[in-house]
């Protein structure tokens, strides 16, 4: 999977939880889940669970700790898929 495909999949996962449409339209690797998309921190765990289901991977506590922006989510998914 290339980066564009990965971002597209992540966008679909994130969409139900965003509270800032404008930031979501302009989503890039630098977009922050909480600061930019205003996702409630209680929903970050839903994004993590949705990512696990979508890519059939499991994220550990250490992975979760960094899951604050699109870039980190991409890096974590990529590293899990390459294992």
């Amino acid at each position: 999977m290339n980066n564009d495909e990965l971002i597209t999949k992540l966008k679909t996962i994130i969409a139900p939880y965003i509270q800032d449409e404008e930031a979501f339209k302009n989503l890039s690797e630098d977009t922050d889940f909480v600061k930019d998309l205003k996702i409630n921190s209680a929903n970050l765990v839903d994004i993590i669970l949705d990512i696990e289901d979508e890519f059939d991977i499991r994220l550990e506590n250490d992975d979760m700790e960094k899951m604050l922006d699109v870039k980190s989510a991409m890096a974590i998914v990529t590293s899990k898929l390459n294992k």
Partner: peptide, 14 residues
């Protein structure tokens, strides 16, 4: 409305 604490693995993660 916005969360489902009963979804699989939700409690274990948090």
């Amino acid at each position: 409305r916005a969360s489902n604490w009963q979804r699989p693995r939700f409690l274990k993660k948090l």
